[in-house]
Design a protein around this nucleic acid. Sequence first.
RNA 1: UUAGAUAUUUAUGUGGUCGCAUGAAUAUCAUGAGGAAAGUCCGAGCACCACAGAGCAAGGGUACCAGAUAACGUCUGGCUAGGGUGACCUAAGGUAAAGUGCAACAGAAAUAAACCGCUUUAGUUUACUAGAGUAAGGGUGAAAGUGUGAGGUAAGAGCUCACAAACUUGUUAGGUAACUAACAUUUGCUGUAAACACUACUCGGUGCAAGAUAAGAAAAACAUUUAAAAGUUGCUCGCUUCGUUUUUCGAUACAUCGCUUGAACACGCUAGCAAUACCGUGUCUAGAUAGAUGACCACUUAAUACAGAACUCGGCUUAUUUAAUAUCUAACUAA
RNA 2: GCGGGGGUGGCUCAGCGGUAGAGCGUCGCCUUGCCAAGGCGAAUGUCGCGGGUUCAAAUCCCGUCCUCCGCU
Length: 112
Amino acid sequence: MLKQANRLTKRKEFGYIYKHGKYSYNNVLTMIYVPTKLKSCRIGFSINKKTGKANVRNKLKRQLRDIVRKNMGSINPSYNYVFVTKPEIVNLSYNQIKDAVVDVISKAKLFV
RNA sequence: UUAGAUAUUUAUGUGGUCGCAUGAAUAUCAUGAGGAAAGUCCGAGCACCACAGAGCAAGGGUACCAGAUAACGUCUGGCUAGGGUGACCUAAGGUAAAGUGCAACAGAAAUAAACCGCUUUAGUUUACUAGAGUAAGGGUGAAAGUGUGAGGUAAGAGCUCACAAACUUGUUAGGUAACUAACAUUUGCUGUAAACACUACUCGGUGCAAGAUAAGAAAAACAUUUAAAAGUUGCUCGCUUCGUUUUUCGAUACAUCGCUUGAACACGCUAGCAAUACCGUGUCUAGAUAGAUGACCACUUAAUACAGAACUCGGCUUAUUUAAUAUCUAACUAA
RNA sequence: GCGGGGGUGGCUCAGCGGUAGAGCGUCGCCUUGCCAAGGCGAAUGUCGCGGGUUCAAAUCCCGUCCUCCGCU
């Protein structure tokens, strides 16, 4: 779980990012990002219902959060992010998901 | 030994590092998903609508008996019917003699019947025609109205009789009852109500996105107190609200409360065949709101499956891993 | 969280106790110099799945899976 300050919570904010964001993706993940005026970046996760049942989706979300939290220091803090998964992610292990996340972020050139 | 039946338990554990939620005595400590949390199929609590109300109409649900329960369409024990060699399992299991509907195809006929056949009369004639009687035999069908034997007859027929099966009513015995057994008696009745229906009992609606706290301002249209409008699921009453409707602006209400002590859980005793109940002792055991349990390492286990609380309980249904226990049945073998 | 609808040939839909049907598409033949249109004929279905009621179930009842929609 991320700290309160780094969570993206409100529905309007998600809507804003979907409308105005830039996209970066691979075959498993899509990352949408938008510049922010706040000092710390905020991150949200969105997992489609087709991905699996409730316990599968919860576990994915937790693993994604953990990955993002561990890499917090290397992510550009002047953006807001939303990570959207695709159904194929179900079969991947923790380490494979980690690689995918790093791949998506580096494609957008947002590493500090 | 093999193949089964029933009931029950189990849902890995410990430590370390990083991280999250809640609470507290706040450099820290404690606690933190399930047996189904699921499906939402029933029953309740709780909240609002009048205190949940009256009548009519319409509609839904349930349906052997007794008991249990806050309640139930649930559970327990029994009855009956069906299945299984058996342990045992399954059942929406009232009324078809109140009425209506349906029963394709086949068949003479489907709820009342004469196609073939059998008998007889008349006519012609030696095989046909017409009439009458006849449900024993034939073939059709899921289903043809009881079966066997004897008497009886022109031929036949419950037409009569005996035995057997079913059914109606009654008496006696057993059982709280459903029902069972015996005896007497009546009848000859198709099936279907998981078709409409009838009978008995029963059901008000909306669901925590309920509901409470809170702040209002402006404009337009309509109406003007014996009212009108809105709510109360159709109508009539009764009741409640107090101008009604629309638009714009404002308020981080995407807030706080509801929210977890409860028909609670654990253990024990007594009553009961059991479901369950009384009593005693002890415990406090998730409460989030983009929504808390994850990652890595070590050892360990039979435990790898199905799967994630969202107001709360009681059931039902469905999904599912591993290991184990007890009782019982059948067959075979040995003593 | 609460509630409602739908699963029938390749596609769009009828049928709602007794036989599985229509249109479009597909295939073959005819027509044409060739194609289209037209004509004739044919194939294609565990009626989502599993049980039950019934003589008989796509249809009635129960359970289950998938899918769409509404409240928000």
